[in-house]
Amino acid sequence: MKITVYGPGCTNCVTLADHAQAAAKELGLDVEIEKVEDFAEIAKAGIMNTPGLAIDGQVKVKGRVPSIEKIKELLK
């Protein structure tokens, strides 16, 4: 499973990546986490407000940092 975090590296982007990693670990999932910081690539993914989160190429979250529990729901 691949998780992509979209954002320029701000505090919220780092927090989202940390939450995604924690959620995957709690579920016992083997995931690859990719960080995309290039604004052109972020826009290409359809994300106008960062941070964004995609799971296996499908954007699930835009413009906010969901809780670890919410990310766990998205990963199931």
Rank of each mutant, 00 (worst) to 15 (best):
M1H: 06
M1I: 11
K2L: 14
I3D: 01
I3M: 04
I3C: 00
T4V: 14
V5Y: 10
Y6E: 05
Y6S: 09
Y6V: 14
Y6C: 12
Y6L: 09
Y6A: 12
G7W: 12
G7F: 15
G7V: 08
P8Q: 03
G9Y: 15
G9A: 07
G9W: 07
C10G: 09
C10V: 03
C13K: 04
C13V: 02
C13P: 09
C13F: 08
V14A: 11
T15K: 15
T15V: 15
T15F: 11
L16Q: 06
L16I: 14
L16E: 06
A17G: 13
A17F: 00
D18C: 12
H19D: 04
H19V: 07
A20L: 02
A22C: 05
A23I: 01
A23P: 00
A23K: 01
A24Q: 00
A24T: 04
A24G: 08
K25L: 15
K25Y: 10
E26R: 14
L27W: 13
L27F: 04
G28C: 13
G28W: 10
L29N: 00
L29V: 06
D30H: 07
D30K: 10
D30R: 08
D30C: 10
V31I: 06
V31H: 00
V31W: 03
E32N: 06
E32L: 05
E32S: 15
I33W: 00
I33P: 00
I33C: 01
I33F: 00
I33Q: 02
I33L: 10
E34S: 10
E34D: 09
E34C: 12
K35L: 15
V36W: 01
E37V: 04
E37K: 07
E37L: 03
D38L: 02
D38Y: 13
D38V: 03
F39T: 14
I42L: 02
A43N: 09
K44E: 13
A45N: 13
A45W: 05
I47S: 01
I47T: 01
T50Q: 09
P51W: 10
P51E: 02
G52Q: 14
G52M: 08
G52T: 09
L53W: 13
L53A: 05
A54R: 03
A54C: 12
I55A: 05
I55S: 10
I55Q: 08
I55E: 11
D56T: 07
D56S: 06
G57Y: 11
G57A: 06
Q58A: 13
V59H: 02
V59Q: 03
V59T: 11
V59Y: 04
V59P: 01
K60D: 11
K60I: 15
K62Q: 08
G63C: 05
R64H: 01
R64D: 01
V65P: 08
P66N: 10
I68A: 08
I68W: 14
E69F: 15
I71Y: 11
K72D: 07
E73F: 09
E73R: 09
L74A: 07
L74G: 10
L74C: 11
L74N: 05
K76M: 06
